[in-house]
């Protein structure tokens, strides 16, 4: 490829390990469907591969991939809204005697915990956590993710990775210490 003297380079073989979780989190915050989000992440990688020649090396790999991902997400929404009638909003008045004439939306109780600000903060927090996770040694990050985020049983992880339980707890301990130190600096 013609990227000669540029600073940033693309290394396709590392993409999945390095960025898939980051991209996936970005997607899942916008598209609330695991399967669709996974497909979109995969599409993004493939699209990135195809347009590697266009990568000028001005931005980092991840920024570049995110920009592709954004297009993919927009495309997804365009596709599901393109069928006629789907984009049209249908509203019905309720016909129950008591709340006759109320909009459906008005009957939903306010959820105080879910407001835009909290969602944004939590998304930022998620980013910070992933950022810190990517700084951990690979093994620690892997064990920590399996245990904490995916919620596997201790035994299952031990079998899968062929480590002993006490070994696992030592890894978890190191990961937690490093993570809280990292978050301390970047978040709290």
């Amino acid at each position: 490829m013609s990227k000669g003297n540029t600073k940033h380079k693309l290394d396709v073989n590392k993409w999945v390990d390095a960025y898939s979780d980051y991209l996936f989190n970005y997607t899942i915050a916008r598209i609330n469907d695991r399967n669709v989000a996974q497909d979109i992440v995969q599409d993004t990688f493939l699209a990135g591969l195809k347009s590697m020649k266009n990568f000028k090396g001005e931005a980092s790999e991840r920024t570049w991939l995110i920009s592709i991902l954004k297009r993919k997400i927009i495309d997804h929404y365009r596709k599901i809204n393109s069928k006629k009638g789907k984009a049209e909003v249908r509203m019905n008045y309720n016909s129950d005697t008591e709340s006759q004439g109320d909009w459906l939306e008005e009957r939903v109780s306010d959820n105080l915990e879910i407001n835009a600000e909290a969602i944004i903060i939590n998304e930022e927090l998620g980013k910070a956590i992933l950022e810190c996770l990517s700084k951990l040694p690979e093994k620690q990050a892997q064990v920590f993710k399996m245990k904490t985020i995916q919620g596997f049983e201790t035994e299952a992880i031990c079998n899968e990775l062929n480590i002993s339980a006490s070994n696992l707890w030592v890894i978890i301990h190191r990961a937690r210490t490093a993570l809280s130190g990292c978050l301390e600096k970047n978040w709290f």
């Binding site: 396709v12 996974q38 493939l46 927090l125």
Partner: peptide, 30 residues
């Protein structure tokens, strides 16, 4: 605090199997 943060942020991860699938399809394309 860390546990609390992780729960609150709802970070998500891809399954290993899915990642491997992606790696394979990327390799093919490559």
């Amino acid at each position: 605090k860390l546990t609390d943060c992780i729960n609150k942020s709802k970070v998500n991860c891809l399954e290993e199997s899915r990642k491997n699938e992606m790696k394979i399809s990327l390799k093919k394309e490559l």
